[in-house]
């Protein structure tokens, strides 16, 4: 193996650049940066009609998360609105398996509960877990990857082996084991997806850092005696973050499908929970209800569709951001559940 690895060689020096590193610069292409990253993303999102629809859908669902049911924090109502027409757990608000109607836009389920209310409230689980998992996982991954990539040497070697171990578990299998240990439930699922999820960010940022840290201004900052921590987080990470942003957007969808898959396997939430995968698990029998039976399609189509729309929207947004940042992240989605 190379002895060059992780060692920093000073090849050039430009004090002016070091003092004012251009935030808009990343990669090697120093001169083309004109627009800020944020502007590029916004412009791309507007130009890409798919992505625009995606943004619209995601905003709608976030709206549903916030306003579907009142939110209380430590006993204080911080959000008093309640959009759901019926209590999501109330049984018998309609007949058993009532088809969609004005009173019940998505019909009712096997206990006569209002599907619209349940599906709307269900966005809370999938959407928030998706964002929280991605937030935590990317933060942990960035810190881990940055340390590993910046210091190199033995530290890097050990940290990369740890990463290899995490990668050797397919996401869903590790999540299954974690659910067996901690049981189902909201925060248990967050943990079950963060633990395998952070590794991809760590690997991405490490790779970028290996590229970026050869840049002149980084070397200069180091030569000027800047502390490691400030070099990493002030200079290196901001310039290496583009692929991480893209990956994060794309993996929200992966997490949401994973949560739903666990719900479907009956391992995510307790049976009555209005989480999309859990609803699908409980209602999957309606898909095969015997000869000449009416197909109570609304019980499975709506929750499934919601998963699909949300994940699709996030992927279209991620795609657009990918284009905007030209980060060229290959979204290796592990398929429903990975």
């Amino acid at each position: 193996m190379s002895t060059q690895r992780g060692r920093i060689q000073i090849t050039g020096f430009d004090a002016d650049r070091v003092e004012q590193p251009d935030e808009a610069i990343w990669g090697d292409d120093e001169d083309t940066a004109v627009m800020s990253r944020r502007q590029r993303i916004i412009q791309q999102l507007i130009r890409d009609r798919f992505a625009l629809v995606g943004v619209f859908c995601v905003l709608l669902m976030i709206g549903a998360v916030i306003f579907s049911r009142p939110i209380t924090v430590a006993g204080i109502v911080v959000q008093p609105f309640e959009l759901v027409p019926y209590d999501v757990t109330a049984t018998g608000v309609g007949d058993r398996y009532e088809p969609p109607s004005l009173a019940h836009p998505m019909g009712t389920d096997r206990l006569g509960r209002d599907m619209f209310s349940r599906v709307l409230a269900g966005s809370y689980y999938s959407v928030t877990i998706g964002f929280i998992v991605t937030g935590i996982a990317s933060t942990v991954g960035i810190i881990f990857g940055s340390i590993s990539g910046y210091f190199g040497g033995t530290v890097d070697e050990i940290m990369m082996r740890i990463l290899d171990v995490v990668f050797a578990f397919p996401g869903l299998i590790l999540a299954l084991l974690l659910v067996a240990v901690f049981g189902g439930g909201y925060w248990q699922l967050v943990a079950a997806f963060v633990l395998p999820g952070w590794a991809i960010y760590a690997r991405l940022i490490r790779g970028e850092i290996l590229k970026v840290k050869q840049n002149e201004y980084v070397l200069a900052a180091k030569a000027l005696g800047a502390r490691d921590r400030s070099v990493v987080f002030k200079h290196i990470v901001p310039n290496a973050i583009a692929p991480v942003i893209v990956q994060a957007t794309l993996s929200i969808g992966t997490v949401v499908i994973g949560v739903a898959a666990l719900g479907f396997l009956g391992l995510g939430f307790t049976p009555g929970t209005p989480e999309w995968g859990t609803i699908l698990d409980a209602e999957q029998d309606t898909l095969m209800s015997g000869p000449d039976a009416d197909w109570n399609w609304w019980a499975t189509v709506f929750p499934g569709l919601m998963i699909f729309i949300f994940v699709m929207s996030m992927n279209m947004i991620g795609d657009a951001i990918n284009d905007a940042l030209d980060a060229q992240v290959d979204n290796i989605n592990h398929g429903g559940g990975g």
């Binding site: 029998d285 095969m288 209800s289 015997g290 109570n296």
Partner: peptide
Amino acid sequence: SAQRAAALEDGDIDIAYELQSDARNSF
């Protein structure tokens, strides 16, 4: 249970038990 119902309907199996109640009704 969904598969048992489907397979019974499809003719893959002749006899099944522990079917879900809606499927049982339609059979």
